[in-house]
Simulated assay, not measured.
Amino acid sequence: MSDRHAARSALPLRALIPNAITMLALCSGATGVRFAIAGEFEKAAAAIVIAALLDGIDGRVARMLRGTSRFGAELDSLSDVTAFGVAPALILYLWAFKPLADAGVEHWQEWTRLGWVVCLSLAVCCALRLARFNIAIDQEELPKKRLGFTTGVPAPAGAALALAPLFWSNAPGNSLDGDPMLKAGIVLMVTAITAFLMVSALPCWGFKAVKIPRSARLFVLAAVGLFAAALAQAPWMTLFVLALLYGLSVPFAVVRYNRLRKAEREMELASAMQPAEVPSQPG
Rank of each mutant, 00 (worst) to 15 (best):
N170D: 05
M237T: 08
V118T: 15
V81R: 03
I57K: 12
F41D: 06
S175Q: 02
N134A: 07
L122F: 14
T22D: 13
P99H: 08
A195E: 11
P180E: 12
V86E: 03
A51C: 06
V118P: 14
L221H: 04
L11N: 04
V190N: 11
G67D: 02
S28T: 04
L75K: 00
H5M: 11
V33Y: 05
F133H: 06
P156M: 13
K98T: 08
M1P: 10
G72V: 03
I212K: 00
P282H: 04
G39M: 11
L92V: 08
F207A: 12
L128K: 01
L242P: 00
Q139A: 13
A243N: 06
E141L: 02
D3F: 03
P172T: 10
R66F: 00
A47T: 09
A15K: 15
D179V: 02
E40Y: 04
T68F: 01
S169G: 08
E266I: 10
R63A: 06
A52G: 11
P213S: 04
T151V: 10
G225R: 06
L100T: 00
G67W: 02
L11C: 05
V81E: 01
A228M: 10
L53F: 07
F71M: 12
V118S: 13
I48M: 09
A160C: 10
L218W: 14
I212Q: 01
L13V: 13
P180N: 13
K211R: 15
D55H: 08
L244G: 03
P203E: 08
E141I: 03
L248M: 15
A131Y: 06
V224P: 00
D179Y: 08
R34H: 12
K183M: 15
L65G: 09
S2Q: 14
G67E: 02
V153D: 02
A7D: 13
V105M: 09
A44Q: 11
L16I: 14
V105L: 05
A131W: 05
V199R: 03
T31Y: 09
D3Y: 05
S169P: 05
A51N: 07
L90A: 15
L239G: 00
A36E: 09
G283A: 03
G29T: 12
K98P: 00
L202S: 02
M1D: 14
P275T: 09
W236H: 03
M1Q: 11
M189N: 06
V124N: 05
R63Y: 05
Q139V: 10
E40A: 13
W205R: 05
R70V: 05
D80R: 06
K183R: 15
A155Q: 04
P275F: 07
